[in-house]
Amino acid sequence: MNDSFELSTDDHGHLILRRPGFDDVTDVHIRRSFPWSHPDGYLSIRDEDGRELLLIDSLDALPPAQRRLVEGWLADNSFIPKITAVDSIDTRFGHQQWKVQTDRGPAEFRVQEAEDVRPLPDRRFRVKDADGNVYELPPLERLDPASRSAVEPLI
């Protein structure tokens, strides 16, 4: 990892990467290498065309202001609602129609195949809907009993 770099934003919300000895790069993107298993490690800073410029080994190594900037950018540019409660799951029609509450407001979506509810090693679940949107489902024991009994038969 290159030690000296600095990220900043312009008025348009674009992220700018400054490194000594290199030209500034405007509109860089950040991607997590392990979004589920190790979200705070190995963050890839890439240019607009997806070429990696820099790999940050760990968020913990960043100065607090830089870390906030990176986290802020990621929060703004990725959308994975966390499901807080499951109102109902209708499985009558062969697919699953989920009605849920999330940290981003209520949502209703359709899960096409049973395999689209994928268990993660840390007991969370990754739920992918028919449009390709992804939701995070906490470990079952963290859900209220009604939600749990709605989800349980499916996983």
Binding site: H12, R31, P35, N77, S78, F79, I80, N133, V134
Partner: peptide
């Protein structure tokens, strides 16, 4: 195009 969130930005 982002991860799960996309934007139409008009300047």
């Amino acid at each position: 195009e982002g991860l799960g969130v996309h934007r139409l930005r008009v300047v």
